[in-house]
Structure formats: C-alpha cells, structure tokens
C-alpha cells in the first residue's frame, strides 16, 4: 500500500486539524489568545520570574542550613501541631453531629415542607460558596485570635459540604426498607433508626473521616489569618525570616498529613468492606 491508498481509506483523519474539527480548533486558538492576553494584563515576563527566583536563592540556602537546631522553640511548634489536629478533629466531629438532623430536614423522604427544605439547601449552598479562610477571618474578628476561631471555621465550612453530602446519601438510600418499616406501623423515629440508618451510617462515617483528612490540610492554613494552629507558627517564622524553622515546620506538616491520610484510609477501607 502506498501512502495515497492509506489516505484514501480514511481521508478525514489525515486532514489538518482545522478542517477535521473546526470548533475545537477555534476554541483552542481563542483560549490561547485569551491566555496570552491575561499574561499581558498581569505584566508577566520571564525576566521578572527569573529575577524573582534569583532573589529566592538566599532564602533557599537559608532553608537548608539549620543553625542551632537544639535551641528552637519546639514546644510552640508541637503545640501548634496539636492545635491544628484538635481543630480538624473537633470541627469535623461537631459538624457531623449537627449535619445528621440537618440532612434529615434537607432530604425529600423525611421532610414534607418543601419551602424549608429549599431554604436549608440554599443556605448550605451559600455556606459552601464562602471559602474556609474567609470564615476564619470573620471568626477571628468576632472571637479574637486563637484556635477557637479556627475550630469554628472548620465547623462552618464542613456544615455546608457534609450537609449536602449527607442529604444526598439519604436521598439515594433504598426506599424499600423504609417502606417496609412504615408498613409495620413503626413510628417515625423507628423508621429512621432501623430503616434508614443502617444504610447510610457507613457512608456518613467514611465521609466524615475523609473530611477529617482534608480538614487537617485546611486547618494548617487557617493560622495565616490568625486562627491558631501550626499555620500561625509557620507564618510568624516566615515573616521573621526564620527560613530554616519554616522548612522544618513544612516538613512536619507533610509528615502529619501523610500519617493522618494513611490512618484514615485504612479505617475507611475497613468500614467499607464491612
């Protein structure tokens, strides 16, 4: 077979891209030009980045040369880590407890007044639309600096997400068991306890664990706006240009997050298998 024969077999495949799929091509061109336009807007230039990174050079060398390691304030660092873990745990735990009744109200099967359901769902949407750091900064204004504000912001951010996930889980639950319970004349609480809960409880637990995992990550950064935890220690040291201690804290954060991830993954696997 010559090249021509092959081309005649499937002529479209060998056409240039703008003939094969003009929509994709124009989209691509549009996107690239928009991207370049944005770079122009932001005054982006390679030389700027290069100069910036060459400014970083002393920072990077300061990061890896650890001077008088044994005199660092380890107690504040480790209490920061403990605070971060505590914020993540308590926030997720309280949010889980609060979200169970909320999700029952937000689900179609158990709550008949649609206007309240609608309002709760929109409220959850709004809570989810606000980033956790914005919550943190608001709570810091209201409750003062410290991990308590961080706990509340983890709690609020979780309320939005877990409430939505839980109510979706309830909506997706099998109705047959619930109808069976109803047919026996069980009370509403008994229907929820024995018809619904056995189905959704594993989902709730695994989702809460997953959120505990992701909240340890987000609790790390809450300190940037003053909401306590390891983030506060880290930003203080970065502002004071203690780069070696900053790198040490970053490494500790990475280790902590990895450990939490592994533990929670193991527990989740176990629950799902059960």
């Amino acid at each position: 077979m010559t090249d021509k024969d092959i081309i005649s077999l499937c002529p479209r495949a060998f056409q240039p891209i703008w003939k094969r799929s003009p929509i994709v091509f124009t989209g691509f061109i549009f996107f690239v030009s928009y991207f370049l336009f944005c770079l122009y807007l932001f005054d982006f230039s390679v030389s700027k980045i290069v100069i910036g990174f060459s400014n970083m050079k002393p920072v990077l060398t300061a990061m890896v040369t650890w001077k008088d390691f044994f005199n660092w304030n380890f107690s504040s660092i480790f209490s920061g880590l403990a605070q971060t873990l505590g914020m993540a745990f308590l926030g997720t735990f309280l949010a889980t407890l609060v979200c169970i009744p909320i999700s029952l109200i937000a689900s179609k099967q158990f709550f008949k007044i649609s206007i309240i359901r609608f309002l709760i769902k929109r409220l959850l949407d709004i809570i989810r639309g606000v980033d956790i750091l914005i919550w943190a900064i608001i709570y810091v204004r209201a409750f003062g600096l410290g991990p308590f504000a961080g706990l509340l912001s983890v709690f609020t951010a979780d309320l939005g997400t877990l409430g939505k996930l839980f109510s979706e889980a309830i909506d997706n639950a099998d109705t047959k068991q619930i109808e069976g319970m109803k047919a026996t004349g069980a009370s509403k609480i008994a229907v929820i306890r024995f018809g619904l809960f056995p189905q959704i409880f594993p989902i709730f637990i695994s989702q809460s664990l997953y959120f505990f995992e992701s909240n340890t990550r987000s609790a790390v950064i809450l300190g940037v706006v003053g909401a306590g935890g390891i983030g506060l220690q880290l930003t203080e040291r970065m502002k004071a240009q203690y780069w070696d201690q900053s790198l040490f804290i970053i490494l500790l954060i990475l280790i902590m997050v990895t450990i939490i991830d592994t533990i929670s993954r193991i527990i989740r696997m176990k629950i799902i298998n059960e």
Partner: peptide, 8 residues
C-alpha cells in the same frame, strides 16, 4: 483532649 488543647 482536643477541647482542652484549643480551649473549646
């Protein structure tokens, strides 16, 4: 433990 740590 966590409530004592973050004075909740």
């Amino acid at each position: 433990i966590s409530s004592t740590i973050i004075d909740f």
